[in-house]
Write a protein that binds this DNA or RNA. Structure first.
Lengths: 178, 178
DNA sequence: GTCCACATGTAACTGGTTACATGATTGG
DNA sequence: CCAATCATGTAACCAGTTACATGTGGAC
């Protein structure tokens, strides 16, 4: 149950309409919690019904009309509760590792091309994160909020760095296979 | 659609019953593709209906009786096809990073305890992986299958190493917050 | 003969995905 | 006015989760 909390966080950062949220999920928040517009509209409806958010006044609820939402005190309280609550880490899933394990049994024919493609994708993502770091976190700024967001970005950068290194190594190993 | 392929891989490595598969998913394969016994039984039923696997003869299909499955040629072909096919990486989800981002907005009260708990869990997992590496991959063995499986294990070790480092750093940063 | 662990399942629910529908606004 | 784009939604489906049900075999 994390999507509603992702939306509450985004709306606290800035009140937005459904489509604006969708775009922001494609950029920053979506880097570690993605969502489609269908999910977002469904969840906005639930959050509004629960009294966690409300549509800003003077925005009529017609189809095709923008509707901006803001977080109500109940929503902020729920987000604070969720943030502080202890949560077990979800077991981690990775299709690529699963495919390699399958390749160990049925043969590696065909996997290398896709490993190369993934390597390229991770390199691009890494470059994007580093660009964000240069742009949004120049040395010297250190409000609490900046530091925490930088910390999260560093996790992204280090993870992408790991994957590029690992994929490079994996391609070398596959090439050298008996 | 990865669970059926995870099961096919496991069954090719060794024909097994549903509960044996469940146990193996709790250990090795489950490290990057977990599954509950309910999922596994459902999927075994589908794979059998599709002609990808079959129950070994002389094992009666009664409730409470062991039923061992083996992979049929059609199942092996499907696994090889899936392994070689190009697949886009799934957008990556991480609740802990989401919670930190929320904490940047609603305050960090309460998160530190859970970060410490996660750090401990990742340290244990890392130790477990390193133990497996010592036990199953001593220097010098290098069949193709060994090398690929070792590669997958190295990904696990490096990921856990990353998380322990990052969590340690995050705890220091939180402690030093204004 | 009863209890417990083993083993296989069923059913209901939840969250995420895919495909499609509908109205409003703007540029040509 | 027509097409493209913006914006909000509906519906059906599928995979994963949670709770529960049922039968077998061995230990005591």
């Amino acid at each position: 149950m994390s999507l509603p909390h992702a939306i509450l966080t985004a709306l606290l950062e800035r009140p937005s309409s459904g489509l604006e949220l969708t775009r922001r999920f494609d950029r920053s928040i979506g880097y570690f919690w993605s969502a489609t517009h269908q999910q977002i509209y469904r969840e906005l409806g639930r959050l509004e019904a629960d009294g966690a958010i409300r549509a800003l006044a003077a925005e009529q609820p017609a189809r095709g009309q923008k509707k901006r939402y803001e977080v109500l005190p109940a929503g902020r309280a729920e987000l604070a509760r969720w943030t502080a609550a202890s949560q077990d880490p979800k077991p981690h899933r990775d299709v690529l590792l699963l495919r390699l394990r399958a390749a160990a049994v049925v043969g590696t024919a065909g996997v290398e091309a896709d490993l190369r493609r993934h390597l390229d994708l991770h390199r691009r993502q890494l470059a994007e994160y580093e660009e964000i770091e240069r742009r949004d976190f120049p040395p010297g700024r250190d409000s609490a909020q900046d530091r925490i967001q930088h910390l999260v970005l560093r996790a992204g950068i280090d993870l992408e760095t790991f994957w590029t290194k690992w994929l490079t190594h994996a391609l070398e190993e596959l090439a050298a296979l008996p």
